[in-house]
Amino acid sequence: MTDTVNRPADRLAELVEGVRHARMSTWMVVALLAVAVATNAAVQDNFFTPYSMTSTTATLVPLVLVALAQAVVVIGGGIDLSIGASVTVASVTAVVVMDGQESNLLAGAAVAVAVGAGCGLVNGLVIALLRLQPIIVTFATASVFSGAALLVLPTPGGSVPASLARGYRETMLGLPAGAWLLLAVLGLWFLLARTRLVRHVYAVGGDPAASYASLVAVPRVQILSYVLCGALGGLAAIALLANSGSGDPFVGLGMTLDSVAAVVIGGIALTGGRGSGIGAALGAVTLALIENSIFFAGVPTNYRPLVSGLVIIAALALSALTMTDRRRRR
């Protein structure tokens, strides 16, 4: 890589190389987030009002949970392209179980997590035991899960218990429930990061062969990482239901792609073994705020997708360029 500096392309890359510093990606996501928050505050007059904070945080919770779910498998050297479909099938199953009855609330929530974890288990078993590439397996299971979601709930409908939807918009100690849940999710990651499973996930993602040699049960860790991913997706499904109040068999359509983008913006290497769930969470928040600010900045409707696409690519580039590059493993 260093022996061919005579081509302009390589010279540019050398220059870029020189700009980068150690662990820059960690603060890059914080900087991007700060810019996103500042932009939002500038373009949306009522951004910091309680009402706006409630609705913003309410939409953020599922995105952050899905980004965290994606982070677990990406750190483990995999990827889950079925996470959006898992969230969808978990949420429609839960809404069918809940059927608007208060007494079914807990059962419905448990079903959401169980279905999510079940989807993860299917992915994990196929990937670890059949030794197929995660990107293709989860690409295929995504169509299986979204087909299953359509069987469970063919058209949008159903309702969640009123208390779930109401509680989700409650304000406690001056902060909306969504903000508390976001803090709880970050707390959850702090706990998870200290478990042996997640430490093994880092090891397997960093170097499966070395992990195997160090007596890490690689297939078991892979399977459990997908189960954990799916279970987090189940939690995201509950948050989605609480936010929308009803079921939708297409709700997770864009979530997979958002989750991967969030993970990259959050400074997690898609090659595995590096990054943190906190980064993914901040990446998800940044991504959502970018969309939000474009909506409020008064960009003409027809130009909105173009502007948001360009801004997202810029954010991805900033994160990717600042990623420290100890091993360039392509």
């Binding site: 392309a9 540019l12 890359a13 870029v16 990827i79 990107i135 792609l257 991967v260 983008a261 990259v264 898609l270 690519i313 991805l316 580039a317 990717a320 360029l321 990623m323």
Partner: peptide
Amino acid sequence: TMLRIPPFVM
């Protein structure tokens, strides 16, 4: 190649 954005997200 230049911005090092993973192909999937690029």
